[in-house]
């Protein structure tokens, strides 16, 4: 482990490239996330934003590039990752919230949140239970701990998924279009939880279409276009004075 600079990034992605067959969807993307950063990644569909996010915890293996998490480095060349620690060790430091929630349907709300605590974090059942209950309360679902995911609304499921990610006490949480699969009236409750997490100082990387969230909550906005970072900056400067034609058009279309 490389000694860490406390103000330095806890998550760095350097020159991430990804090809599917002959199609290069990520053409060298770099990104640094420092503690308490909330980074919104914007882009039209097909810009590669979800793929990039999935490359950060290696649900998708990049074709080449480097990911550094807390000083542990994974270097990928020709699709072959070289890592100093097992991939699971990297993943448990990065929470992930999916577009389709992906709760385990055979487990209750409580069990969904406890699962990783017991089997990955190796906590005792009792400890896992109290941690899980704490985070379920945090997302406002204490009344539903024993419900199965199938009995919850989409918004509730996504809040459970957030609690599942939080409970692992990750260094950063990746959000992959967390509100895109929700009915419009359910979007608000999920965004509210995410906003409160940002206010708590959690490190978040969010792929989203929610302009208001990007604008008001995030500390940094990154605009991807055709597999490249076309613009990035604070939301104020980005939205006030968009530099590229593409980003102007993108904002206008939203």
């Amino acid at each position: 482990m490389i000694p860490m600079d406390p103000s330095g990034p806890i998550l760095s992605a350097i020159d991430i490239r990804k090809s599917f067959g002959d199609v290069e969807v990520l053409k060298g993307i770099s990104l640094d996330a420092k503690k308490h950063d909330v980074i919104s990644i914007l882009g039209a569909s097909g810009s590669g934003k979800s793929t990039f996010l999935r490359c950060l915890n290696f649900l998708e293996t990049p074709t080449s590039g480097k990911v550094i998490i807390h000083g542990d480095e994974i270097n990928v060349q020709n699709g072959q990752p070289k890592m100093s620690v097992p991939i699971e060790d990297i993943r448990k430091r990065l929470g992930m919230v999916f577009q389709q929630f992906n709760l385990w349907t055979h487990r209750t709300v409580l069990e969904n949140v406890m699962e990783g605590l017991i089997h990955v974090r190796k906590k005792s059942r009792g400890e896992a239970r109290s941690i899980a209950e704490n985070y379920i309360e945090r997302v406002g679902l204490s009344q539903r701990v024993d419900a199965y995911p199938g009995h919850l609304s989409g918004g509730q499921q996504q809040r459970v998924a957030i609690a599942r990610a939080l409970a692992m006490e990750p260094d950063a949480i990746l959000f992959d279009e967390p509100t895109s699969a929700l009915d419009p009236e359910l979007v608000g409750e999920v965004l509210k939880v995410m906003q409160s997490l940002a206010e708590e100082g959690r490190t978040m990387i969010v792929v989203t279409h929610e302009m208001a969230f990007a604008r008001e909550v995030s500390s940094e906005v990154v605009f991807l276009h055709q597999g490249k970072v076309l613009e990035k900056g604070t939301p104020d400067e980005m939205f006030a004075t968009p530099k590229s034609e593409e980003f102007k058009r993108f904002i206008a279309s939203m």
Binding site: L59, P86, K92, N102, L103, W104, H106, G116, A161, A165
Partner: peptide
């Protein structure tokens, strides 16, 4: 089997063996 739920298992850091026994097999 729902691919998303298997990815979610990977994302919390389960090993492939754990994913098999805890998520895939029960479903």
């Amino acid at each position: 089997l729902d691919k998303g739920q298997i990815e979610a298992a990977a994302a919390v850091g389960m090993t492939p063996q754990q994913t098999f026994w805890r998520i895939k097999l029960p479903q």
